[in-house]
Simulated assay, not measured.
Amino acid sequence: MDNSMMTMTTTMTMTMPMDMSSTSMAMAMPTSTEESTSMSSMSFHTSTFDFLFSRKWTPSSRGQYTGTCIFLIVLAVIYRLTHILKHRTERYINARAQQLAGNIATAHLKMDVNAGSFEKSTGEATIEPERPLQFRNVRPWRVSMDIPLSLIQLVLSGVAYLLMLAVMTFNVGYFLSVLGGIFLGELLFGRFTSNIERN
């Protein structure tokens, strides 16, 4: 009787560590395919089933994956077009501000001449020291100028962050689609960033 009790105790002692070690091994292994996919997706891969922006936007066929890539190309073209639009708007607003400043200076000069207080320059210019945190040649803040620029920058930043999220999936197709869209946008609209002097 004592021998059988000792045998049972030895068997229980031998099986308990083995069961515990197998449990710890099961806990160390990924519990689902989703975790293993997230661990292996931190490098460039060519899967056609990566979601974009949301789990609901997951291509389930090659046709849907191609449509997602085309969407990214169009989004990158919009990003480049918005960047050029902001550049052109800034140039237009700065030219308008210079024109307004010139009109104001001309009006003041005419008022001084009419009042008889216009004095000729003696050739000596007085240079005022620039104060800290004071910038020269900065246009004044205007609602009609700064709000449109801020809205364009808002759209530009939003599209840029969406493209960044697409690239961060490390999907080769998404990455190449973003690069292709930027190239296409520059090819179509890049010439609008430069002005050509016409005689």
Rank of each mutant, 00 (worst) to 15 (best):
S43N: 12
M14W: 04
T58Q: 10
L52Q: 00
T15V: 12
A26Y: 06
T37V: 11
S38C: 05
K56P: 01
T31V: 07
I70F: 14
D50W: 00
M39N: 13
S41N: 08
D50N: 09
I84H: 05
E34V: 15
T48V: 07
M25H: 07
H45L: 05
I84T: 12
V74Q: 01
M39T: 10
T23H: 08
M5D: 15
M42F: 15
F53R: 05
L75V: 12
E34D: 13
Y65Q: 00
L85C: 14
P59S: 03
P59C: 05
F49H: 11
S54T: 15
P59R: 02
I70C: 11
L85F: 14
I73S: 00
M18C: 06
M39A: 15
M12S: 11
F44N: 06
S38K: 14
L75C: 11
S41H: 03
M5G: 13
T13M: 11
T7V: 07
P59T: 05
T33Q: 09
S43K: 14
T7A: 15
V74C: 08
F51R: 07
K86F: 14
M20H: 08
W57Q: 05
E34A: 15
I70W: 10
K86Q: 11
M25W: 06
T23I: 13
S41L: 05
H87I: 10
F51A: 12
P30I: 03
S60I: 09
L75S: 06
T68I: 05
S54C: 12
F71R: 00
H83D: 14
I78S: 04
L52M: 07
Y65A: 01
H83P: 00
Y79T: 06
T10V: 13
T48S: 09
E34T: 14
L81P: 02
T13V: 07
F44V: 15
T66V: 12
R62P: 00
S61Y: 04
M18K: 12
I84Q: 00
P17T: 10
T46V: 10
T66A: 06
T23F: 10
M39H: 06
M29K: 07
T11Y: 05
I84G: 02
G67H: 03
L52R: 01
M27N: 13
T31S: 07
W57H: 08
L75Y: 04
F71N: 00
M8P: 01
